[in-house]
Design a protein around this nucleic acid. Structure first.
Lengths: 160, 160
DNA sequence: TATAAAGTCGACTGAAATGATCGGGAATTG
DNA sequence: CAATTCCCGATCATTTCAGTCGACTTTATA
């Protein structure tokens, strides 16, 4: 499995988004500032996240990004796959031609490891992370002082 | 966790070694040829493996490498750590300064993933891989035709 | 003792991936 | 129209990976 800062940034950014979208679309520049990630880099990542339909975008002033689905239905694995493409620990990428057109001796080992990692990361969803984070921060919430735009199709508006 | 071909090569090479050391020290050039890994690259990897005391070397003609311990006591995780140094999925390498000297929101996630991967790879030892591989290959054994040198301290000589 | 077979070591290199930057767009609001 | 925000492609610097090279040491054996 590929585990790079790309995936890490994506998960962190998605969590930031999830924690703030109750106030309407979240701008990338906000995420960039809070999480210390370069804006242009975030744009690239969110391009992929949007194409995978994990987030939805709202253009224009007051726009930004929202989760495309409920946080409970977005797993960490999905986020990482979306930005990091291959979720595979084998050299051959599953083609089994690692050694002279045969599968190498350790092929199964890496396949199994891939599956393990995937299962673990797929068992954790954004909502889990939100809960953890709120526990840590004793529920600090920052509100916008202007009326937020709606998050497109998203009904959202969970929690009082 | 770092998972690169470095670690993959190391595990494959160690398995090759484990499967053949009954005939005395195994040369790196042999491993290189059988597993299609560049000799010089293997030398680097085995330098690390030796320093971590996973293998022992025998110099001079008829020399080569042997496992430094019983295959049952060498886990895949140990091999990977030996060559790939950091077994850590966090950005900060455990220093917890991922975000402005604080631990970032997803720090625990990556820590836990690291632990998961480690536990899995640590639960598999070289002997397990040997058994699997022998099952696949219906026990093909190639013998040297000259008397092999002993594997230094290693008593070894398991199996008839 | 000479030679060849091995390991040992450190510096170097090419290529790829990563992380980041830049500039110009298009959509949308007011 | 102007400001804000997303959108996209090209480009770039750095790091890491994987591999190479050359010089050296140790040791068996002819």
């Amino acid at each position: 499995m590929r585990l790079t800062t790309k995936g890490r940034f994506a998960v962190t950014a998605m969590l930031d988004l999830a924690l703030r979208q109750e106030n309407g679309p979240v701008t990338l520049s906000g995420v960039a500032e809070r999480q210390r990630i370069s804006l242009s880099y975030l744009e690239q990542l969110f391009g992929k996240l949007r194409r995978q339909e994990l987030v939805a975008s709202v253009r224009g002033p007051g726009g930004g990004y929202c989760l495309a689905r409920d946080a409970r239905t977005i797993s960490v694995a999905q986020i990482i796959i979306a930005v990091d493409e291959p979720l595979d620990a084998t050299q051959c990428g599953g083609k089994e031609n690692c050694l002279d057109e045969h599968r190498c001796m350790t092929h199964d080992l890496w396949s199994n490891l891939s599956r393990h990692m995937f299962d673990y990361l797929d068992s954790i969803n954004l909502h889990d992370l939100m809960v953890q984070q709120r526990e840590r921060n004793s529920h600090k919430v920052v509100l916008h002082d202007h009326a937020p735009r709606a998050c497109s199709t998203e009904p959202a508006s969970v929690q009082a």
